[in-house]
Design a protein around this nucleic acid. Structure first.
Length: 618
DNA sequence: ATGATCATGAGCCCTGGC
DNA sequence: GCCAGGGCTCATGATCAT
C-alpha cells in the first residue's frame, strides 16, 4: 500500500478521536465486542450539537464546522484546531469519501418531511428541538446523511452513542447493503461468513481509529443483521478498494461453497467417540471419510490450530469455516499420557506415518506417580487423571475429605466413597498419604504435560501463575505426534511462527522431535510466559533465532514481512487461541468467540491468511 | 501491589432406560 | 426417538494475607 493514499484519505477519515467507545450504553453483547476491539480512550460527554452551536457562534462557517466535527469527533480542542487549520490554509478539500454526492437541499427537505413541524439547521433552532433524539438526527442530517439513516443508527446504537460512532454505523450499513448484492445466491449464513472474513482481514489494513470504528460496526452488523438503507454510500476509496478486492477473491470460493451439500445438520460438529482424531498409537484406527483440504489451504506454510473440544455449540463450526473448511481433528490426550485433555486441532499437515515421541510417557496414574501407589485405596479405581486445569482444589476440601475418610475406618460407607471419588475426580486429587488427598504439584503437571522438569519453575514466577500457565498449555506428546510428519519434510530445520506461544509447548514438541528450530517468531502477551520460553531456549542451547512479539493485535503485515524477508517465509504457523470464553470451567463469561479473550481467534485467522497470502506472492 | 485461597454452576456430551 | 441422570470442563471474581 502506498503511503500517499493513506495520507490523502486520512484527511477525510483520520479522526484522532477522544470518543469513549467503551462506554456505549447498550446491553447488547455485540457492543461488548466493539469495546473489546476498540482502543480505550478518554471520556468525552459533550454532545455534538452543542459543539456545533458553539463554533457557529464563534463565527466559523457551517460547512467548516461540520467538516471539523466529522473529522474530529466531538473533542472541542481537536475541532477547534482543525477549524483554525482550515482558516490558515484556506482550502476546501473535496469530499473524497462521498461516492454519490448527496444534495444537501434535498436532504434538508427529507428531514422536513420527517419533522414537518420543525425548522431545522440554523443556529438557535438546535437548542429548541424538543428531544435529544431530534438534535442528534438534525446534526447527522447537517453532516449530509439522510434522516432515516440517522434514525436507524440511533435505534440500533442507542442515543448515548457518540456522533462519530453513529456516522461509522451509517457508513457501515450503507456499505453492507451495497456489497451484499455482490455475493448473489449464497445462503444467508454463508454470506455473513464471507463478510466476517473480509472484516477480519481488513484489520491488517487499518491505519486510523476511524477505520477501526467502521470495521467494528460492519462486523457487528454482519453478526446481527443490518438495516437496508438506500442512501448514498459513504466510503473512503481505500476502504472500498480493499473491500471490493476481498469480495472478488471470496466470490471465487462461491463455486466451492455452492457445491457443498445444503445440510442443515452441518452446523453441528460431531465429536468422535472414542476421541482418537485421525488415529492415535495403540488404538484401532477410526473409520475415516475422505479428508479434504481445499487448494487454497494446502502446503507451506503449514498451520496447526488448537482449542478446547467442548466449546459452546457452533464455535467449532465457525472456526472450521474460517480455517478453510478443514475438519477439526479431535483428540483426547489420555491416549498419550496419564491425564485426559480433550482438544480439537485444525491443521493442514499430512496424517500418514506419524510417530510418537520417545520415550513414551507413563499412561496410568500409578506409572506416572509411583510414590503415591501405596496410599491409593482399593475403592478408588481411577487409572488416569482428568484434565489439568488452571486452578487446583482447596486445602479445605482436602481436609474435609481426610476427615470423612478417617471417621469411617477401614471401609467407608458407600455415600462417603461416592462423595470422595466425585470430589477427587472433579479436582484431580491424588492420594499422597494415609487417608490424605492433595492436588497435583506443578512439577507433576509439567511431567504429565510432557515438559522438561522445572520448565515453569523459578525466574520470579509465582506458584499460582505456574498453575495458570500449565493449565493453558499443550500436551506435548499429543502435539508432537501430529507434528512428527514435519521431520522428513524439513530435515534441515524449520522456521516457525508461534502464536499464543504460552510456555512454548510447540517449541518443546518440535525440539523433542529432533527438528532444528532455525527461526521462531513467538507472539505471547504474558511476560511470564515469554520469560519461560526464553529461558528454555537459552538452556537448550538453541542455535536458531528467537524473536518475541507481545500483542497479536499489533502484529502488522509490515513486521511479518520484515521477519520473513530475512529467512524466506515460515514453514509452520502454530498455536492455540485463548479458550477462556469457551471452556466449561468458566462460570461468568463463557460467551463463545465473542468473548473478550476468545475473539482473538479472529486475529489468529488474520495472521494465517496474511502470511499465506504474502507467501503466495513471493 | 502481589500472591494465595476459596466459593462460585452451566453447558454439553454420553448413556441407559423406556 | 425421547428423556432423565451422570460426568466432565485450557475459569473468574471476591477476599484475605503478606
Amino acid at each position: 500500500m502506498d503511503s500517499s493514499s493513506i495520507e490523502s484519505n486520512s484527511i477525510e477519515w483520520n479522526t484522532e478521536d477522544e470518543l469513549d467507545v467503551d462506554n456505549i450504553s447498550s446491553s447488547s453483547s455485540h457492543q461488548d465486542q466493539i469495546a473489546d476491539f476498540a482502543p480505550s480512550s478518554s471520556s468525552c460527554n459533550c454532545r455534538g450539537s452543542n459543539t456545533i452551536h458553539q463554533f457557529l457562534q464563534m463565527g466559523f462557517s457551517k460547512e467548516m464546522v461540520i467538516k471539523a466535527v466529522k473529522e474530529n469527533g466531538q473533542n472541542e480542542g481537536a475541532v477547534l484546531d482543525a477549524l483554525l487549520a482550515y482558516k490558515t490554509f484556506e482550502e476546501s478539500p473535496e469530499d473524497e469519501h462521498v461516492l454519490d454526492d448527496p444534495c444537501h437541499a434535498e436532504l434538508a427537505s427529507n428531514v422536513l418531511d420527517v419533522y414537518p413541524d420543525k425548522e431545522i439547521c440554523e443556529n438557535e433552532e438546535f437548542k429548541n428541538l424538543s428531544t435529544e433524539k431530534d438534535r442528534t438526527v438534525s446534526l447527522l442530517v447537517e453532516m449530509g446523511y439522510q434522516a432515516e439513516e440517522a434514525l436507524a443508527a440511533i435505534d440500533r446504537c442507542s442515543l448515548d452513542t457518540p456522533i462519530a460512532e453513529l456516522v461509522e454505523f451509517i457508513s457501515a450499513a450503507q456499505f453492507a447493503y451495497h456489497t451484499d448484492a455482490q455475493l448473489g445466491e449464497l445462503s444467508y449464513d454463508n454470506k455473513i461468513h464471507q463478510h466476517q472474513k473480509v472484516c477480519v482481514l481488513f484489520l491488517s489494513e487499518l491505519t486510523c481509529s476511524s477505520d477501526l470504528r467502521f470495521l467494528n460496526q460492519l462486523y457487528t452488523m454482519f453478526l446481527i443483521g443490518f438495516p437496508k438503507l438506500n442512501g448514498p454510500v459513504y466510503m473512503s476509496k481505500k476502504k472500498r478498494k480493499f473491500y471490493d478486492n476481498e469480495m472478488r477473491k471470496l466470490q471465487k470460493q462461491r463455486k466451492y461453497l455452492e457445491k457443498q451439500p445444503m445440510d442443515h445438520d452441518n452446523e453441528i460438529v460431531h465429536l468422535p467417540n472414542p476421541m482418537v482424531g485421525f488415529g492415535v498409537p495403540n488404538q484401532p484406527s477410526p473409520v475415516l471419510f475422505q479428508r479434504r483440504i481445499p487448494d487454497e489451504a494446502e502446503g507451506r506454510p503449514y498451520f496447526y490450530f488448537e482449542n478446547v473440544a467442548l466449546a459452546p455449540k457452533g464455535v467449532w463450526h465457525t472456526m472450521s469455516r474460517f480455517l478453510y473448511y478443514i475438519d477439526p481433528e479431535f483428540v483426547d490426550s489420555k491416549f498419550f499420557c496419564a491425564a485426559a485433555r480433550k482438544r480439537g486441532y485444525i491443521h493442514n499437515l499430512p496424517i500418514e506415518n506419524r510417530s510418537q515421541l520417545l520415550p513414551t510417557p507413563p499412561s496410568t496414574i500409578h506409572e506416572a506417580l509411583p510414590h503415591t501407589k501405596q496410599y491409593w485405596p482399593s475403592w478408588d479405581k481411577r487409572m488416569q487423571l482428568n484434565c489439568i486445569l488452571t486452578c487446583i482444589g482447596s486445602a479445605k476440601l482436602t481436609d474435609r475429605i481426610k476427615k470423612a475418610v478417617e471417621k469411617s475406618g477401614d471401609e467407608p460407607l458407600p455415600g462417603v466413597k461416592k462423595y470422595v471419588i466425585q470430589q477427587c475426580k472433579k479436582w484431580n486429587l491424588i492420594w499422597v498419604g494415609k487417608n490424605k488427598v492433595a492436588p497435583l504439584e506443578p512439577h507433576e503437571m509439567e511431567m504429565l504435560m510432557g515438559f522438561p522438569p522445572n520448565h515453569t519453575r523459578g525466574g520470579g514466577i509465582s506458584r499460582t501463575e505456574q498453575y495458570t500457565v500449565l493449565g493453558n498449555a499443550f500436551q506435548v506428546d499429543t502435539v508432537a505426534y501430529h507434528l512428527s510428519v514435519l521431520k522428513r519434510m524439513f530435515p534441515d530445520g524449520i522456521s516457525v511462527l508461534s502464536l499464543f506461544s504460552g510456555i512454548g509447548g510447540a517449541e518443546v514438541a518440535l525440539h523433542r522431535l529432533g527438528i532444528p528450530l532455525r527461526n521462531v517468531v513467538s507472539v505471547e502477551i504474558s511476560e511470564t510466559c515469554r520469560k519461560i520460553l526464553q529461558s528454555w531456549w537459552d538452556e537448550t542451547n538453541q542455535q536458531g533465532k528467537l524473536i518475541h512479539f507481545h500483542d497479536i493485535r499489533m502484529v502488522t503485515a509490515h513486521e511479518l514481512e520484515k521477519c520473513m524477508s530475512t529467512f524466506g517465509g515460515f514453514d509452520l504457523i502454530i498455536g492455540g487461541s485463548p479458550c477462556n470464553n469457551l471452556a466449561g470451567g468458566n462460570r461468568s463469561t463463557r460467551n463463545g468467540l465473542e468473548g473478550s479473550k476468545s475473539c482473538l481467534f479472529f486475529e489468529y485467522y488474520r495472521i494465517i491468511e496474511l502470511v499465506r497470502s504474502m507467501m503466495r506472492h513471493r
